[in-house]
Amino acid sequence: MSKAKASKDYKAGGAKKWLIAIAILVLIAIIVTVIVILIPANTSDAVDRLRQSSQTSFLENVTEQENYNELEDKISSSYYRYYVEEVQDIRDLSQSINEMLDYYYEFIPFAEDNNVFSDNYHGIKDNLENAVNYQQEMNEFVSDLITLENDADTHIQNLWIDFRVAYTNYLSSMTGAIEALNNVYQGCFTNTLSNNEASSTILNTIDDFLYVISNEFSNLTQTDTKGHTSTSNYNYESHGKILYLSAFIDNYIVDDSDIVQYNFESALQENYTLINRYFEFYKQSNFRNVIESISSDSPYDITLTYDDQDQEGIYNAVKAFIDVR
């Protein structure tokens, strides 16, 4: 009789132990989740990462510039010299990106460490770190191309296409980082002179430019394939957009008069109010369709038109704002 009783007690104790073990595991999972959510991101890491990136991003240093110049020379003397415009545009686009990183670096050390910063912490840090890895790949392809022993054009094309893939990934990462930096700029400088309707319009437009251009490079990597000697697969359309972006950044970021003087000049306030009427009037949330319509042929005009009763001149104000070449 006592043996049977002991056997029954043993089975009940085993189930209880499993329940306790599962409960402990669930509790640990809950605690870890709460800790991860509640512990704030170390946003100073993002500042450190941005500082480094603003100093070391693609074509910031002289060695990279010299190597890239050599790459351009090699391509321009090959069968694939029709890539040269793209090569030059990537140089200009990289400079535009570097100028944006410099601009944001001037502000981010002062950003209020609030939820907006925390929410965009990974967008900044992870994207900039990914960009570093892609930059390393790009530099390897550049080095391989300029040190090619066999200068067969197909080898040049192959390496350029590999470089383009890496650059497209780099561009995508930088676009993500810059968008996150824009969010921090707009969300972490409450009631300052530097954060105003002009700055938000300008910085959002730059995000739009990068988004459109990044997409076009992505499309190009999927269509321009190795081993094709005709240009039928090569639909490079971004030259005009990169020209516009470069001029836009020179006009509104390098020379930041509009941002600095916005709160002191009623004419500027009126102009940006008019420009921002575009979103409500044309039911748009950004300027991407305007930017996408920039022609790929000289003189690279904005081709988007509206059949409307725009008596206020809203769209003309937008075009004048975007096209500052």
Binding site: F110, F189, T190, N191, T192, L193, N263, F264
Partner: peptide, 11 residues
Amino acid sequence: LGTLVEGERIV
């Protein structure tokens, strides 16, 4: 405007 100047002052 004074409020915005104060914000810039803090920075």
